[in-house]
Simulated scan of single mutants.
Amino acid sequence: MMIGLVGSYGSPAQMVRLAHEAEQHGWDGFFTWDGVSLADEGFDTVACYDPFSILAAVASVTQRITLGALVFAAPRHRPWELAQRALTVDHLSGGRLVLPVGVGVPTERAVTSVHGQPSARRDRAGLLDDVLAWLERSWSGEEFSFEGTHLSTGPFRFPQRPVHGRIPVWPVAVWDADRPPLKSLDRALRWDGVVAQVRGDSPEDAEAGPEAIAGLVAWAAAHRDPAAGPWQVVVQGRLSADDGQAAEQLAAAADAGATWWVESWWDPRTVTPEHLLRVARRRLPRP
């Protein structure tokens, strides 16, 4: 199983240093996050930086680790600008970019304070599908026009394709064995992986444990064509400071079917750049 780290808080320079330290200490991935102006208490004083600028800088000081964000709020981006930024980081990094994507935080002011920006979850989900379809068309290298449910454009052409022909896309999907949200699950099946969550009011509450992961993986195995290629299952959490317990956490996630563990520290009251740097420098307790 691969192990990544989210650079949740800090200046751009601190995030770049964090990513470099993570690679030097054996981590497999570095992720930033995608926000503009957050309204939630505690988060409303957190500085938000452009994720692609951060990742471009990180690409220049790393050689191996996977790069991305948890998660890109794709419906908020103009798809042609998103395609250009993603292509730039993809080539700077030699093809190490991945695109975890979701509908975005509903209380973000880039949604609630912008006239005409879709705010209903259904509309943002529909726009997410259009943006992803547009991105995929842009990777063909051919001229294309697009007509979706929420988005239509005339001709575009991106003559330079991604390094590996396409950029992996990992949509967020919620697992609920009693009430599975089939639209988000089906979206994840169509792409290259899933950022797994459960229903919850906070990032920590929404973390999927081994039981939920096992249920999601079993459902996906029954509904996804095995010939479709590799499918990543991404979970978030915080490893115990005790190496033995941390190894057990990783083993439990891997046994349930997770392929990525992403170390995610989100509480703005307690998490500092210095804490994240200590996390990046720990010896990884590989199971």
Rank of each mutant, 00 (worst) to 15 (best):
A74N: 04
L55A: 06
H275K: 12
D225Q: 03
S11H: 08
V101N: 05
T149P: 02
G193Y: 04
M15S: 12
G229N: 06
R283L: 10
A125I: 07
F156S: 13
S145T: 15
A133F: 13
T149E: 15
W139F: 11
W80A: 15
L55T: 02
F156E: 06
A59N: 08
R85H: 08
G209K: 04
D192T: 02
S184R: 07
E136I: 09
A208D: 12
S184D: 06
A222M: 06
A69W: 03
G35W: 13
H150L: 12
A251F: 00
P12L: 15
G102I: 04
P106G: 01
R278W: 00
P155E: 10
W170N: 01
L87K: 00
L135D: 00
A22D: 11
T32C: 11
P273N: 09
V169E: 07
S11L: 13
V98N: 08
D225V: 05
R161A: 09
L239F: 07
P75T: 04
S240L: 01
G154I: 01
A47P: 03
V169S: 07
V58F: 10
G95R: 03
P273M: 05
W260G: 02
S152D: 03
T88G: 08
P100V: 11
D28I: 02
V103L: 08
S140C: 00
L128C: 06
G244A: 13
R278C: 10
E81F: 14
M15R: 15
F144A: 06
A177H: 12
A13Q: 14
A256D: 12
V198F: 07
G26T: 02
L55R: 00
P181S: 10
W33L: 10
F52T: 00
V16P: 08
C48I: 02
V105I: 11
Q160R: 15
L82D: 01
A69T: 03
A173D: 01
A214S: 12
A218K: 11
L128T: 10
V198K: 05
L99F: 06
